[in-house]
Nucleic acid binder design. Structure first.
Lengths: 104, 104
DNA sequence: TTTTCATATGAATATATTATCATATGTTCA
DNA sequence: TGAACATATGATAATATATTCATATGAAAA
């Protein structure tokens, strides 16, 4: 076994690689990626998201919480509903990268 | 529920989103991302990879198979050993995107 | 202030994923 | 040919993850 320094040589520590894996995990579930992609249009409330991606409210709420914990979306109350939006400029870039990949 | 066309409006079909999720899944596991990152250096055989990332041979072989099925790595025999290499130009780009993200 | 609407949450279940162990396969070299 | 080496693979067990169901919470409107 080599040590931690090996990772550093190329610029990423082991810890950072784990962080990266966690980031990509956010995009690796079909419900979550649909939610993120749905929010490309701009802010939407939970009901709208559910309709757009055809998933039930509870499942969507659970995943929104996961995405929020990962700081990829933010939310605010607006009257009776809660509106969500992308909270990270990289989301679109990362999905775009993946898009380029699968389109070849 | 809306239909498939909604996804198309923004350029990705539901099917493509599922493909994307599968792609990101490859980067979402710590063992796999370590393997991919290890291969940034160039070709390596299985034993070297195991040493570099400190995982046992069987686990590494299993994940190499997953990565190969996803066409992210390729392999060839070289004497007694099998050498693996990145098989996709996008791997580095995608990881680089993620890197930018976590570095902020 | 009670009812209704919108969302969140906990628990349970179902499913997927990963690592490990034992062993098989295939190659080289004595 | 057989021993040693390198890798792959199948089965199992451990763990993680997602969905569903029931219900709680909180805001608005009657």
């Amino acid at each position: 076994m080599r040590d931690r320094a090996d990772y550093m040589l190329k610029g990423l520590s082991e810890e950072e690689l784990l962080e990266l894996a966690d980031l990509f995990k956010m995009f690796s579930d079909s419900t979550r990626i649909k939610i993120l992609y749905d929010l490309f249009d701009g802010e939407k409330n939970v009901t709208e998201i559910c309709e757009d991606i055809d998933m039930n409210q509870s499942a969507v709420s659970h995943q929104l919480k996961v995405l929020k914990t990962a700081k990829l979306v933010r939310s605010r109350r607006e009257g009776k509903s809660i509106v969500y939006a992308l909270d990270d400029d990289h989301v679109k870039t990362i999905i775009a990268m993946g898009k380029e990949h699968i389109e070849e």
